[in-house]
Amino acid sequence: MKMNIKLTVYFLICSAVYIGIGAVCFAETQTVSVLDDFSRANRFYKEGQFEKAKDAYEAILDGGFESGPLYYNLANSYYKLGGLGRAILNYERAEFFMPQDRDLKFNIEFCRSLVQDGIVPRQTLIANLLDKLSSKVSFNRITFMSAALYCLLCILSGVYFLSRRRLQFLKPAIFLSLIFFITAILTLSPKIYQNHLRREAVIIVPEAACRFAPSDTSTTYFKIYEGAKVDIVAEDAGWARIRTADSKIGWVKGEVLQRVYTAFFKS
């Protein structure tokens, strides 16, 4: 009994220290001036000055801050200015921060329906399931949850090994935290794949020629239209080798597309 109390106290201290350090290290920054800028940009939008609104949202991004609603509003501004490609690009970025937002889902579906190619990508059952799972929470949240579950798993296992008589009541707790940890990792992995490995991009010009080779004189294989989402397979001297949703591969000029998750890559 005495030992159990000692262990519980030990466990609580460990958790408190971990959460305390975490809170200090990863506290989110709220800046009053950014909020003012955001409100000003919203005012421009409401007054129908979409160009000014777009510039104001971009200025906040240039200032080094980002948020889901910021990308969402910027995408709305681009849409109103006729930039379908950039609108979809910024909706995609907003989805990263607020994947469950219904307005965002509606807008992104609406804009995708306006894209000329109308290609519906095929997905396997497992990929679809993982996609659905990962679209429930934002990237940072699922990262934090995974880390917390990992920490809990380590601490519980550590306490179990330390205890002289191997406290049996810890076993179900360890098993449960292991299950949750695996689920969190499964949720996180499609996002990591999508953001780090897949390298998604959106076409931002009305029409682009996709060629057989990275050269202006090369034969055009097919045309790709504004708003189409593609994967960057490789890059070479200002050209990008892309794969479309229907698995066609060709070269386009680098300036016709923009990556969705630029923050992760050193381009």
Partner: peptide, 18 residues
């Protein structure tokens, strides 16, 4: 499209992912 968001949401430094 649906109207803009009034709330700015949680700000974070650009590219500052956990």
């Amino acid at each position: 499209i649906i109207y803009i968001k009034e709330e700015a949401g949680a700000w974070q430094k650009k590219g500052d992912f956990l």
